[in-house]
């Protein structure tokens, strides 16, 4: 089974009860949007790899309630995240704060552009000596 690990954690998740949290929407749409955004950034530690927003574990339900109450009490996003980190450690943040991780994709792209530029320059120079004939078919495989 390809998902044994996930499944193993899911088993943990669903042991007590399936907890969909039927809370009414927050009256303030801005707060509601912030709440939804925040619960998508927190990791359900009972089930690994899933967000608190997308699981039905008890843990996720408690955390959702806590986030909702803090948002309603006027706490900032940063305060909510810090509250969770103080108790659970950085492992609860699914959006890592490490600058390297965020820079890496851009660096990869720059590296890719550099390589493409080099190869293209080489190959264009070779056009003058390359006399091979290639069919016009887009794909003659």
């Amino acid at each position: 089974m390809t998902r044994t690990m996930v499944v193993a954690f899911l088993a943990l998740c669903s042991l007590p009860v399936l907890a969909i949290d039927p809370a009414p929407l927050l009256p303030d749409p801005v707060q509601q949007a912030r709440y939804v955004d925040l619960i998508h950034q927190l990791r359900c530690l009972q089930c690994q790899g899933e967000t608190v927003a997308d699981t039905q574990a008890m843990f996720a339900k408690d955390i959702r309630r806590q986030v909702r109450e803090m948002v309603q009490a006027g706490k900032s996003d940063h305060e909510v995240r810090q509250y969770m980190v103080d108790r659970y450690g950085k492992i609860i943040l699914l959006r890592p704060e490490s600058a390297w991780l965020w820079l890496a994709p851009a660096l990869f792209l720059l590296g890719g552009i550099a390589i493409a530029w080099r190869v293209l320059r080489q190959r264009r120079a070779l056009l003058a000596t390359d006399t091979s004939e290639v069919g016009d078919e887009p794909e003659q495989s």
Binding site: H40, G49, G89, K90, I91, L94, R95, P96, E97
Partner: peptide, 12 residues
């Protein structure tokens, strides 16, 4: 420890 999840992968 750190976690990397959907909020990282979706944009990157």
């Amino acid at each position: 420890t750190l976690s990397v999840g959907a909020p990282y992968f979706n944009p990157t």
